[in-house]
Design a protein around this nucleic acid. Structure first.
Length: 285
DNA sequence: CAGGTC
DNA sequence: ACTGG
C-alpha cells in the first residue's frame, strides 16, 4: 500500500468536485473517496481545503502524485481563475459557496460515453449506466477490501453490441454508445489527439459522432480535452442565464454559449460549472 | 421530470 | 423515442 500527502497550495474540494456532475463512477466509504484514475483504483481523503491524502496499490510516489495532480487539475491557478471570472454577484456567490470545486481532466473515452448517456437523463441514472457498463465489461481492480472496475475500451463496448447495452438500461442511448465505440475503434477519431486541435476543430470532429450534439461535445471538451473555454449549456445553465443574466428564453444554444465565452473568456468553463452547481443545488434547499 | 439528440 | 431515480 502506497500513501502520500499532496499539498495543493490552493483550494481543492474533493466532495464538491466529484458531485458536480462531471464524474459518475466514484464511491465514498467513510471519509475516503474511491475512484479509478488511469486504470488504477485510488482512494482520497480530504485533510484540509488545500491538502489531501492519497492511497493506491498500483501507483506510488511521483507517479501517484502526478496522476492525481493531472486528474484534478491541481496545476490550475484557481485563485487567478476566480479573479478572471468574478464579473458579478452571482459568480461571486457561487465561488464563495463552492470554493475548491475543480474542473477535472478525465479519460476522454469514458467522458464521451458518460455524456452520451446524459441525454434526457439524470445524474443518478447516468451513474447507474456507467457503473453497469464497467461491471459488465471492465477489468476488476482492488484496493483494501474494496473493488471497482476500469472503464471498458471502445473494443470491449463494440463487442458487446447495442442489444446488450440496452439490457444495461441505456435505453435509446445504447445505439449512440455502440456507434461511438465503432467510430473511435476504427480510427476515424483518436480522442486524445483532439487536445492538439483548436476548440472549434475538435468540437466539429466530436459532433460527427451520432448522439453527440453541441452540449455533449462541450462537456467532453471541457472535462477531458482541456478546452476550458467550452461552455456546456444544459437546462440548469440555461435557467441560470435567464434568471440571473436576463438572457432571452428563445436564444439558441450557440447564442448562449458564445455570449458566455464573450463575457468570461478563456475560463468560461469554470464559470459555467459554478453557475451549474449553484442553480442545481438551490432548488433542493 | 431528467447535464439532449436525431 | 426508453425508463428509472
Amino acid at each position: 500500500m502506497n500513501s502520500i500527502k499532496i499539498a495543493a497550495r490552493q483550494p481543492i474540494d474533493i466532495e464538491q468536485t466529484l458531485q458536480s456532475g462531471q464524474v459518475f463512477r466514484w464511491n465514498k466509504i467513510g471519509e475516503w473517496y474511491y475512484l479509478v484514475i488511469n486504470h488504477n483504483l485510488v482512494s482520497i481523503k480530504q485533510e484540509s481545503l488545500e491538502d489531501i491524502l492519497v492511497r493506491s496499490e498500483t501507483l506510488s510516489g511521483l507517479d501517484l502524485e502526478t496522476a492525481v495532480n493531472d486528474y484534478f487539475r491541481l496545476d490550475d491557478d484557481i485563485e487567478y481563475i476566480y479573479k478572471s471570472i468574478c464579473t458579478d454577484k452571482h459568480i461571486r456567490s457561487a465561488i464563495q459557496s463552492y470554493r475548491g470545486l475543480r474542473i477535472v481532466r478525465q479519460d476522454p473515452w469514458e467522458c464521451l460515453v458518460s455524456f452520451i448517456c446524459s441525454a434526457n437523463s439524470n445524474i443518478p441514472r447516468i451513474s447507474s449506466n456507467m457503473t453497469n457498463l464497467a461491471a459488465a465489461y471492465g477489468n476488476k481492480l482492488h484496493l483494501d477490501e474494496h473493488s471497482n472496475y476500469s472503464f471498458p475500451s471502445p473494443h470491449q463496448i463494440f463487442q458487446a453490441g447495442e442489444q446488450q447495452l440496452r439490457e444495461l438500461k441505456l435505453g435509446f442511448r445504447a445505439r449512440y454508445v455502440a456507434a461511438a465505440a465503432k467510430f473511435v475503434l476504427y480510427g476515424e477519431c483518436d480522442l486524445d489527439s483532439l487536445k492538439k486541435l483548436s476548440y472549434e476543430e475538435s468540437k466539429q470532429t466530436l459532433t460527427l459522432i451520432s448522439g453527440v450534439g453541441q452540449k455533449v461535445a462541450d462537456c467532453v471538451l471541457l472535462f477531458s480535452l482541456e478546452k476550458l473555454q467550452a461552455c456546456p449549456v444544459d437546462r440548469w445553465v440555461r435557467r441560470a442565464m435567464e434568471g440571473w443574466y436576463s438572457i432571452e428564453p428563445n436564444l439558441s444554444y450557440e447564442e448562449i454559449s458564445s455570449w458566455a465565452i464573450n463575457r468570461w473568456g478563456p475560463f468560461t468553463g469554470y464559470a459555467q460549472q459554478y453557475l451549474f452547481q449553484q442553480k442545481r443545488l438551490e432548488v433542493s434547499n
